[in-house]
Design a protein around this nucleic acid. Structure first.
Lengths: 214, 214
DNA sequence: ATTTTTATAAGTAGAAACACGTACATCTAC
DNA sequence: GTAGATGTACGTGTTTCTACTTATAAAAAT
């Protein structure tokens, strides 16, 4: 059904590799399996093999999964790397996504999930264990939580935005065709309302409240 | 196999609702289907029905999907709402996640995806169309991209960090047990190195480069 | 071993920000 | 129709920042 895949398992635990190999060969996935014990071995071998899917452990001796992923993708950006992580180490996910992993599996997943991850990533999608996905979504939520409870007027927001752009009061005045003295007053009011005591705090406030985007 | 679900479809396009209803009743999902034409109708009815899954369009007259989701979850935070979106409107996803949706489906998905989304979300997971997931991941990546390529010295980073906290040069000097004039000089050098022209730009630079966290 | 970078400190001056006032026209809300 | 918020503008200070300069010692890099 699916073409014969070349799957590369990078993990320092022999038993884990063997188990996964067994599961893969007893599944209906046609695959050749290659192995490495750590990131260094993998980096030495992957170019000869050119695997379709790489299952990459994160915590490994010599060269860890994050570095290995990063380095391998520098050489071949098309590589499809799925991170493998112990439960509890799921916080590595940002670093692995950063490094360029296309998927993230927890080691306590069912084999069916592994299968799905392999097929999804092979077909160009991303795959993330539900627990990881949950974390990602929660994270997105968290950051947006405190928004829009400032009581600045429209004009004040406009002034603040321009302050963040690095304009001086004089420049802002020119841009908005008002007097510099007016901008002074607005700025003063904004400082009061936001309980800031200088420009630095104003900018931090603006960014926190999504008035200015970094 | 699965218990009989109560599925609530909220969408202003009759044809779309009818089509989805047909597909759901011809699938192996045992479900009672309820319908509303917009967010207002939904908000009027959902408490009586107490649905297991809500498929919620985003762009609708009177009350849109984002507001409806937000309001409904205020009343019952346990509701499992899956957002439905036209291809091209996928940028609503942040707002829908924000509002509390547990899943996000594109309307050009295959019915199988709809089925999976319903089952996943019903069982407490999140479900996101691959295209959406892609967007989320890319977004995570993007933000981390430009890091650590500043050439500020350690001391300069320290000074900059303190500037972002809203301290004046004088206060920074006191904190670090150095002369205010030294801080002045550091600040000048930082402005030069970061090609900033004032405090506002400094703070933006610091946040962009993860020297200061908002 | 010598050059460069870094951290420190200071003088002088002008620009900008900050703080306190006052004032008035407009618009919204009660 | 009056109260409150908003946007506009000015006066007069003080404080802080910005910009130019010089200088020394230690650390790092070449």
């Amino acid at each position: 059904m699916t073409p014969k895949l070349k799957i590369f398992i990078v993990d320092d635990h022999n038993l884990f590799r063997e188990g996964l190999l067994f599961l893969l060969s007893n599944s209906n996935l046609e695959a050749d399996i290659y192995e490495a014990e750590n990131g260094e071995q993998f980096l030495d071998k992957f170019q000869l093999i050119n695997p379709d899917i790489i299952l990459m452990d994160i915590e490994m001796p010599v060269i860890n999964g994050i570095t290995a992923t990063y380095e391998a993708l520098k050489i071949n950006p098309e590589l499809k790397i799925i991170a493998l992580s112990m439960y509890g180490n799921e916080n590595y996910y940002t670093e692995m996504i950063d490094a360029g992993a296309k998927g993230f599996l927890l080691k306590n997943s069912k084999f069916d999930d592994v299968r799905n991850a392999i097929l999804d990533v092979y077909s160009g999608k991303n795959y993330f264990s539900p627990e990881i996905l949950d974390g990602i979504i929660k994270n997105l939520n968290k950051k947006k939580y405190k928004k829009a409870n400032y009581n600045l007027s429209e004009r004040e927001v406009e002034i603040l935005y321009n302050i963040c752009k690095g304009l001086s009061n004089h420049e802002i005045a020119d841009n908005l065709f008002i007097s510099k003295r007016t901008v002074d007053k607005h700025r003063e009011n904004i400082l009061l309302k936001t309980q800031s005591k200088n420009t630095a705090e104003l900018v931090v406030y603006a960014i926190k409240n999504k008035i200015f985007e970094v």
